[in-house]
Every structure is written in C-alpha cells, then in structure tokens.
Design a protein around this nucleic acid. Structure first.
Lengths: 236, 236
DNA sequence: ATCGCTGCTGCCAGAATCTGACAGCAGGTT
DNA sequence: AACCTGCTGTCAGATTCTGGCAGCAGCGAT
C-alpha cells in the first residue's frame, strides 16, 4: 500500500473512534511501526488535518473529513460553488457560515482563471416565476468564458421580439429564472435578459473587445448608482 | 519538492495551455527527467485526471480541475452537499447534471456514517415564507447525528404553545423555512416542526431507542400512503 | 516513403526517501 | 511511584523514486 493511501486510511480509522485511540492501536491497524505512525500523524497535521494527541490518552480527530484529490470539470466546480453560495445566504446561520468556510477553502486552491469564471456566475436571490428556459445555457456559459459575442432572439415583456448581438459577461440566478447580463451592441448599454425569453441562441467566433471582469465591475457599479438606473430588463 | 506537490503542479501547468504541450517542455517546467514525467502522467491518469497524450503532438488536459486533499468539517461537507442538491434541482439542466456528477464523486469517497448524516438533511423545494428562525439549528443537527431526544416549546399555526419531547431524525429545507422531522413522544406519531415556531430548544443526553435511518425510511413510506396522511405540521 | 518529433514501455543502477528499532524526555492517569 | 502515552533524535536497512538508455509505434511534414 502506498504511503498516500495509508494516510487516508489513517484518517478513516480515526473517524470511527470518538474516544482517544493510542498510537500503538493505530499503528497495528495500518500495519506499520509506532515510529512510522508518529511520522504519518505529523504529515497529516501538516496537511491541515485536525488531529490532536495527548500524552497518556491517545489521538482524537475533530469531527470532519479529509477529501482525497478529486478531479472536477469546470461545470462541476461551478455547480458546487453556486450551491455553496446559495447555502451561504440561507437564514440558517450556522450552515451558512459552514458554506462560507468551505467556499474559502476551495477558493484558496483554485487557479486564478477558474476563480474568474466563477465570479461571472453571480448569485441573486429574489422572487421568480416557474418558467423553464428552452435554450442551452451551456452555450451562454461558454461564450462568457471565451469572451465571445452571442446572438439570439429576445421576446420582451410585451411579447415583441427583437434580434440581439451582445457581449455576455455574467449569468445570474434568481430563485427560478436564469438571467444573462450583457452589454447590448444594438442599445449600447448594459441589459439583462431572462433566459426563458431567449431563443435561437447563436454562438459566434468573434471575441468582444473588453475584458469580462472589467465589465462585471462596471455593471455592479452602475447598479449602485440609483440615478442611472443601472441595467434594465431588455425591452427598449 | 515532494512528489505529490509536483503532481499538482503538473496539472496546473497543463491547465495553462490549451494547445498540446510536449512532455519535454513539461519535464523542464517541473524540473525532472522525461522518464519521470511519463511516470507522473501515468500516476495522474490513474487518479482520474483527464490527460490525453498523442504521439507527435503532446499532452492536453480536458477542461477541469484537480482538487488537492482538503479537510472539511462535517458541517462544511453538509453545506456543500446541500448546495449541490439544490443546484441539481434547478431548471438549468446542464448545471444540474454537473451538480449531480459532482455529488456522485464526493459521495463515492465519503465514509458511510457521514453519508448517513447527509441523508438526514432532506431537500424539499416548495413555497415558503420569509420568517427567520430564532433557534440554533446546530443543536438540532447535533441531536440528529447523536440520535438523542430533543425538548422544546412549539407554537402552532393558531398560536397555541405546547411543550414537546421528540426524536429528531431529519432536517428539511424548504425555500425559506427549515423544518425538523421527528417522532413526537407526546403524540406518538411523526410530526414536522417549523424551525421559526420552535423556542427553548433543549438538547438532552437521552438516546432514543430507534435508528435514525430506519425512522427516515418509515417516514418516507408514510408520505407515500395518502390514506394515512403521513406526518402533519404539529398542531394536534 | 522517409524523416523528425513525440508518446510509451522495459530495464537497471544510483539517489532519495521511507521504515523500524532503540533510546530518551515530557506530560498525564492511576 | 508506577505506568501509559505522545514526541523527538539517530541510524542502518528496505523501499521507492529517479535518470539514462534502448526500442517500438503513431503522427505530420517533406
């Protein structure tokens, strides 16, 4: 058995005991000498495992779990982060704090570019309707990641349809409705588009000339300025 | 630099390149021989990293990310799983599928006892009100984990208060309101209790005589039997 | 087809690391 | 005081890792 596998085993064994376990017992369980066990414990502590040893008693692992190395796709990471953000906004303060802590741990090991991707997935909570969107939001997310222009047909609240070419930079999640935030080329302004009112989505190869991150920042600033009224649902 | 750290570095370097990178380049980047690089690539592939090598071209890493070993508390894991379950129920099918995949990967490496804990946190989506609960749900979660009785004061829809001693076994999340599901000793039946109507929460040391998992199963079965009417909001 | 580049595997000796045993100290329980 | 336990240092042997070499196969360009 490899050393790394043995370390995970050790954590699992510790998890199964609430009372202190002596090093001798642990060493026998994983089949190594007591000396090596001490080294393993030290390694685990170095990796952040909350193991405590007390002389005369033994070792205890604070409730928790060590996740082994896992491979996630971008979308899976995005789903986890989005879900955790939602939990972090729930009224259950304890669980919300736990979600925030978990997010911080994940964010700490994420490469910068992926962290930027996640910033483009804003989480907003508010009242929403039940309509399910017919379009493939994967295309929208890809366009945001690649900073490419996106074409589609938009039907506004009044039912009037219009053709749009936009620079998408964020996807917001209301309770039931997804909203894409973008710079609209036709209107020369920020607009947001309800996903359930979009159709005929067309990904283009044309990169738009601005940085996604900068636009997001600018859009947020525009939201804070009540006089300007910020972005509005695209009807104009 | 340790081998494990080097492997993570290797993934990071691969992430930064979209075009194929030759093994020679990678080997120089991490400071090892080409032979060792081949071994490292093989190890990573063995751990599930989607690295592909083509003769005459080089290596490409499919978009994704390898999470290094991370330590989470029980509550942090619970928050992540709950959030992912929420995402998995969203109308955005692509992201929902990603959330389900991520959950499967996490569940695969979770010890059984922790998985049971998570089953006790049911996710239900439906209309809810805005009331924030005043009690500490951490106590409820702890009681569920320990399978211990819980005492509290409950105010029903009509405003009448009653003292309760229950065997809690699940915590359900509606959109805005948390609901505890438990066997009520006084009423000798399953009941669910809105967290915002509970007060004076008292954790006891008394273990209740049934297994949490069995009660959860029985409760779910009772929900499917319309004649019995299942558990109701505790007013009787 | 030929050439060059690359991925991939087997082999082997030296380097690096891991491991077990022993000794000794400190802190806690009985 | 006696005992158990955590923890550290040291050192030789076992194990693993590493680099160099050789050879085969697939791909693209000439």
């Amino acid at each position: 058995m490899s050393r790394s596998a043995r370390l995970l085993d050790l954590v699992q064994i510790l998890r199964r005991h609430r009372r202190p376990v002596s090093g001798r017992t642990l060493a026998d369980a994983i089949g190594v000498s007591i000396r090596t066990l001490y080294r393993d414990i030290a390694t685990l502590q170095g990796q952040g495992a909350p193991i405590e040893g007390e002389a005369g008693l033994g070792y205890v692992l604070k409730p928790g779990f060590m996740l082994p190395p896992l491979m996630f796709t971008d979308e899976e990471i995005e789903a986890i982060v989005l879900g955790s953000r939602w939990v972090a906004k729930q009224p259950d303060k304890r669980l919300a704090a736990a979600a925030a802590d978990a997010l911080a741990k994940i964010a700490a090991v994420l490469p910068d570019d992926l962290r930027d991707d996640l910033d483009a997935t804003t989480l907003l909570v508010g009242p929403g309707s039940e309509n399910a969107e017919a379009i493939d939001l994967g295309i929208v997310r890809q366009a945001i990641r690649d900073e490419r222009k996106l074409g589609f047909l938009y039907r506004d609240a009044g039912g009037a349809a219009s053709k749009r070419l936009v620079w998408p930079f964020a996807l917001a999640f209301f309770d039931k409705v997804r909203v894409m935030v973008a710079w609209c080329e036709t209107r020369q302004d920020f607009r947001h588009f309800r996903a359930d009112r979009m159709s005929g989505l067309t990904a283009t190869d044309i990169r738009y000339p601005r940085r996604r991150h900068a636009m997001l920042k600018e859009w947020r600033a525009s939201l804070d300025a009540p006089g300007r009224n910020g972005a509005k649902d695209a009807s104009g």
